[in-house]
Write a protein that binds this DNA or RNA. Structure first.
Lengths: 256, 256
DNA sequence: CCAAAAGTGTTGACAATACACCCATGA
DNA sequence: TCATGGGTGTATTGTCAACACTTTTGG
């Protein structure tokens, strides 16, 4: 600091608060959301078509500014509700988690924007729920494979988010966040298989999930038809556990 | 956004850039550093004694503002060099990684400060290196157990950072970042035992490390006395691997 | 010779794999 | 009755934890 002739920051150092307020350039602080769902055997991400320069017509992650009295988490949930049109209580229950903060000086060509990125996992929901909000006219689910030429550094954020959820499936119970409130083990397995892009042995997967205490708990009466053919599957709910000990390791074999 | 009458952010939405520049309250963006080392069988963290209000006399994590043309990562390394007095090339090689961003509106009583927190792992180094910088007169290593009543929300940041490195040791090769360039397996094991607070079986730990390809590689000629008694131990360097497959799981047993 | 720490070997428990097989349902 | 997906059983394989034992140093 002395070398730069720079006063220390309020929250971290020993600077004079009155000087400090003028010692920094103001930054815009935004949130960006990587919202994922599993749909028809493919990982999908929620994207918005840009209507203005720069990057007109390109797809971008939803997001927005953090308001003066908000935390980044609060802003993320607010933006999520606005862009998806989902009711507040649904958004409040979604799994939302900080990914990382992107702060390269030129990531936005117009001005200095520091963006806190979040990863959100939602169950597959009818498309209208997404299109619903008046504000979300351009919001759409795209298969992650189709999502190219994203605006700004959003391709990097998306890649980081994918990698994160892939490894989080290994050692947390996160996969249930992709499922509806009650789900079959086949649906749960499909989450793993689509995120990892590998096939899993069905009997072994079943055993692993059921023997991990608190991962899922059986719904007493429930049995659901699995979409037509096959034996009806038992229904499960997410259990109280959050971590997976021991982890469910991703096969290192060939990518499907 | 429509509900709030608020224009979308530049980096994330569809807002008019000229309006956008005035649509947000300026935030200060800072970095906070949780710098850890393993010292005498205890995890230590680098802290700075505050000389001004608020929290005069309290310990705080080192940190500072992000400058106009810096990324958070660049700012973190700059601050680290300034506060520790270490030469730039040493700092450039240290393991530094984003922890998470803290953005509660009132985390700094004076003004709105959003802080990107980093976790840094350094090998045990002589205390003078830390005290060296003219700016770092108040920087000291404290055992994490002794670090209480930290300024701002730094106790939360510190707790989050501890938890993160604990779990990162399980599935990455990160532990070598706590060791000098060449180290014995006993030193490496001490890192795990100190961070986790558990005892590990020496033979099994050895096998696990040596059979994981790329974790460590033997230094051809080297053998070092382990500080007096005992058989001299072979020396190892960090290998090219970064991930640990399969992971080295932390025993869930009693805390030592 | 003893203590201390490195290094090797062996064994049993347990977990993960790979597969064979049966069950219930829709077409 | 056949295809499809759910559910069960089992043998093999591999990994990990526990612990006995040898080796090499300093005191």
């Amino acid at each position: 600091m002395t070398a730069a002739g720079y006063d220390p920051p309020p929250a971290s150092g020993r600077g004079d608060p009155h000087l400090a307020a003028h010692a920094f350039e103001p930054f815009a602080v935004a949130v960006d959301l990587a919202v994922f769902t599993v749909r028809a055997g493919t990982l999908h991400v929620l994207l918005i078509r840009r209507g203005q320069e720069p990057y007109v017509g390109a797809w971008a992650l939803p997001g927005g500014f953090v308001l003066p009295r908000e935390s980044a988490e609060t802003a993320a949930r607010r933006e999520l509700a606005e862009e998806t049109g989902l009711p507040a209580e649904v958004v409040a229950a979604l799994h939302l988690e900080q990914l990382r903060t992107y702060s390269e000086p030129d990531r936005d060509p117009r001005m200095r924007v520091v963006s806190v990125a979040f990863t959100v996992l939602v169950p597959d929901m009818p498309e209208p729920a997404v299109e619903g909000g008046g504000d979300a006219a351009h919001a759409r689910w795209l298969a992650v494979g189709e999502a190219s030429d994203l605006a700004f550094d959003h391709a990097v954020i998306l890649a980081d988010a994918r990698e994160r959820i892939g490894s989080k499936l290994e050692y947390t119970c996160l996969a249930t966040a992709f499922c509806p409130p009650e789900f079959t083990l086949g649906e749960l397995r499909a989450v793993y298989e689509t995120v990892w892009g590998t096939a899993l042995d069905r009997p072994n997967f079943r055993r692993k999930v059921l023997t991990t205490p608190g991962f899922v708990e059986a719904v007493p009466g429930g049995a659901r038809l699995t979409g037509g053919r096959g034996k009806p599957a038992a229904l499960y709910r997410p259990g109280p556990a959050t971590a997976l000990h021991p982890p469910l390791l991703r096969p290192e074999g060939p990518t499907r």
